[in-house]
Design a protein around this nucleic acid. Sequence first.
DNA 1: TGATGTGGTGAATATGTATTCATAGAATGA
DNA 2: TCATTCTATGAATACATATTCACCACATCA
Lengths: 211, 211
Amino acid sequence: MNKTKLSRKEKDKLRHREEILEAALILFSSKGFHTVSMQDIASDSEFGVGTLYNFFESKEQLFVELMKAGIEKIGQLLIPILDSNQEEEGKLSEFILAHVDIIESNIEFIKLYVSQYGMSTSANPMLKNISVLKTTVASKLESIIKAGMRKQIFRRVHPEIVALSLRVTVEAFSLESSEHFDKVKVKEGLLKIENFFLNALLKKETDTKII
Amino acid sequence: MNKTKLSRKEKDKLRHREEILEAALILFSSKGFHTVSMQDIASDSEFGVGTLYNFFESKEQLFVELMKAGIEKIGQLLIPILDSNQEEEGKLSEFILAHVDIIESNIEFIKLYVSQYGMSTSANPMLKNISVLKTTVASKLESIIKAGMRKQIFRRVHPEIVALSLRVTVEAFSLESSEHFDKVKVKEGLLKIENFFLNALLKKETDTKII
DNA sequence: TGATGTGGTGAATATGTATTCATAGAATGA
DNA sequence: TCATTCTATGAATACATATTCACCACATCA
């Protein structure tokens, strides 16, 4: 038994936990919370139902863990970009393009994540995490746009509207893409989104290459 | 018994049907399909559970009827605008502003409608109607933008991206608004959205009044 | 070797709820 | 008035499924 290293047994247990989460993710993302039973998750992960309860208090808690893990990952990718200290144009650009990797490495989760965006997140405590990231991203985007306006890089716009629009456009596109992922097309689409929003924001016109 | 007029009995029955649908709408829109029981709907509409089954084959069918009715109403408001023969700028403008009335007269339904937008509509047959309207609106918006570009009223943009962005922006805004409806604020917000998109599209700059 | 602990198990339990159906009562009409 | 029809009803049914728990298999180690 070591402080830094885990015993084989402990590693096994952790791996089992991951296996359960993975099976649950695939099921939830394709069929939704209510239409997936603990029995389904047990079968797919090749454990007994009882075992699931050794790892998670309840079905709901299992779902919450899933959300937390996924949101965490995405937040860790997006927030640093929005907080970096490059110029505003670059931040927005990177924010948009970052979604290529986000979608690619989290297809299953994105389905779950984005598919819940529309739901009344404020009401449902199961979606608290989503709600928080959503708000954070929105407010950071808004700040960036305001900063760009102050520096006269961006035209005069309504920052809260542009922030909303940019956020939901990328979300909608990500959802659509995660259904039939094709890296080239995703990149192409996100470049178009980048192009549209930067043209709408920047004072100088940039090239619009109609692909 | 009359061919054109309905007997009192028939009118009663029709009204009862409406009462059930109304109770169901409020319940579904606030708690979601799975968390509402037929018992709940029966209690709220002041009928017995058995009665519900005199009107609707199943819970699912009841939900579908609800969707159909609401989508119908919204479609009848939006499609004519998109199909009208005013110039492109006017169509987009009207499309956006039409949402003031749509939200006002369908708050409960909008919650249901927009809240399902994110869900994998292609998979779930219960949401077929939504999916169809969504696609129709998207393609009509895209055509309008293309037409505007052809006439050189609009700048060169990626029509499918702008169409997507406009649609989901209005949707997201509508959902947000339906949670705490305030007509003045809704109108203000939609005007900002109109302003942003027209500025992004039109060759000549229009005024951006920061409110 | 036997004692102890750990993770795993799935049948049994408890609960919720969609749907049915035999029945009641009101309206209609002969 | 009696028979017929229509709507409404809610207890009973059937089923699904979240959760529990007594028990197993195996590893660890005294």
